[in-house]
């Protein structure tokens, strides 16, 4: 049975408002699953729930997460007692899962790097944590840097958006994560750089990593992903194969498609 990550019945509540209501998805090793939806539909919250990091305010009130890796099954949310669960409790349950099994590429890649560390040390720490071999330069090269020696002494504030994305990609690769949650990796990048980053993510999936790609760019979805989950106001609107995206039935999904088509001049 292939490695698999499956989330079911995810509910997140802030006070009396449901932020996520019964979200479900599953991804297999080597597959790219796209999670799309407009801003505020709960994409990032879903992503963080996969790591037990919903943030300080909202509380996860129900979740069934099953992560199957090397025939070993993790169910971090099972048997946690009455919800919402404290972050301390979740820290304990997700120990050994965060990073090692599920990696996270934060939305703001530069903000995700310790501001006072050089790239070299950042990647070196991931290598130590992941117990992987190789020098930081090797991993940086694998993440698409042709001249890692130039990047290694730089601090995060000296990196461009695309470079920061590649550095956090290198860190996640060095960490040896089996599944990667990529939170809008293409936002704010020019088309050339974006294509480069997406090619690296594609390569990662080809190497057997399961990728959950969060985006609101529907053009990417049909190119990269095999399946799509469309979120709207905290609910799963539709789940379908990526190539059937143009035949989406719900009005919301159709609206999003049309808006994307208008912005990109009709060519998807």
């Amino acid at each position: 049975m292939p490695d698999r990550l499956e989330m079911r019945r995810l509910e997140v509540r802030a006070r009396d408002r449901m932020l996520l209501d019964g979200v479900h998805m599953s991804v297999e090793a080597g597959e790219i699953l796209a999670l799309v939806g407009e801003s505020g539909s709960g994409k990032t919250l879903t992503a963080r729930s996969l790591l037990g990091l919903p943030g300080p305010r909202p509380g996860i009130v129900s979740a069934e997460l099953l992560i199957q890796v090397d025939g070993c099954c993790h169910r971090p949310y099972a048997g946690l007692g009455p919800a919402p669960w404290s972050s301390k409790l979740l820290d304990k349950r997700f120990k050994g899962i965060r990073g090692a099994v599920v990696g996270y590429l934060p939305q703001d890649a530069r903000g995700g790097l310790d501001p006072l560390w050089t790239v070299q040390r950042l990647v070196a720490e991931s290598i130590t944590l992941g117990g992987t071999s190789g020098e930081p330069a090797d991993w940086l090269r694998r993440a698409g840097f042709d001249h890692p020696a130039v990047v290694q002494p730089l601090y995060p504030h000296q990196l461009s958006g695309g470079m920061a994305q590649r550095v956090s990609l290198a860190m996640t690769m060095a960490r040896g994560s089996r599944f990667i949650v990529a939170d809008e990796p293409s936002t704010g990048l020019d088309p050339t750089v974006r294509n480069g980053i997406l090619a690296e993510i594609r390569k990662l999936a080809d190497d057997g990593v399961g990728v959950i790609l969060i985006t609101h760019d529907l053009r990417l979805v049909s190119r990269l992903a095999r399946r799509v989950v469309i979120l709207h106001q905290g609910k799963v609107l539709e789940e379908m194969a990526a190539r059937e995206l143009s035949s989406a039935t719900s009005t919301r999904a159709r609206e999003m498609l049309l808006a994307t088509a208008r912005i990109s001049g009709g060519s998807r």
Partner: peptide, 26 residues
């Protein structure tokens, strides 16, 4: 900051984040 969240997602414990990344480095 986002990097603390990223460090958590990377599998670092609260202790290491606080004493090493936040206190010592920053």
């Amino acid at each position: 900051d986002e990097f603390v969240l990223a460090a958590r997602a990377h599998g670092l414990g609260s202790w290491r984040i606080l004493w090493y990344h936040l206190l010592w480095i920053n």
